[in-house]
């Protein structure tokens, strides 16, 4: 089965790769584009490690065929810290939400999508949104703490500072 040209936008940059029909998005990101921040845990849909954004939706790259992303906008963990660490990344480090770190990119990409949709989620909404991501180290509580902390941080950043009082 012959290779075909896949043109899509990855982390804001146009990318062109020749891929075979049976290649998954996860394998193309990691093996062809060298974006190894995206992890593959189970490769079967059960762990969430491979989560990336496809046209703004958090999806599993291990169960997505690369060619199905023709023309799509992909965002991976590498996009979050181009200039400085993203508040989610800082919070995961500060709260102990990342230990071995293997699950972290998946958790952060899903949390990031949640916070873009819902900037002030309740603890329960965070738990529900992250119900497809597995972590074997942290026991989850520190991850939820981290998302809460990052949400607060992001909200503070978004609220414009009050204009200086006129003299």
């Amino acid at each position: 089965m012959s290779k075909r040209l896949l043109k899509f936008i990855v982390n804001g940059r146009q990318a062109e790769v020749a891929v075979e029909p049976h290649h998954t998005l996860a394998s193309v990101l990691r093996n062809e584009l060298n974006l190894t921040g995206t992890k593959v845990g189970c490769d079967m849909g059960t762990c969430g490690c491979c989560t990336v954004h496809i046209d703004g939706k958090a999806k599993l790259s291990c169960l997505t065929l690369a060619l199905e992303c023709q023309g799509a906008q992909i965002r991976t963990i590498e996009a979050l810290n181009e200039y400085e660490m993203h508040p989610l990344q800082k919070a995961f480090a500060e709260c102990g939400g990342s230990q071995c770190g293997y699950c972290t990119p998946g958790f952060i990409m899903k949390s990031c999508e949640l916070l873009e949709r819902n900037p002030d989620p309740t603890r329960e909404e965070i738990q529900e949104a992250l119900a497809g991501n597995l972590c074997r180290c942290t026991g989850f509580m520190k991850i939820y703490d981290a998302v809460e902390q990052a949400a607060g941080e992001l909200r503070r950043k978004e609220t414009p500072k009050p204009a200086p009082a006129k003299v």
Partner: peptide, 13 residues
């Protein structure tokens, strides 16, 4: 762990 997909032709109507 990587689980490889078998080869197939993909049609995208």
């Amino acid at each position: 762990m990587t689980m490889l997909l078998p080869k197939f032709e993909l049609h995208q109507p």
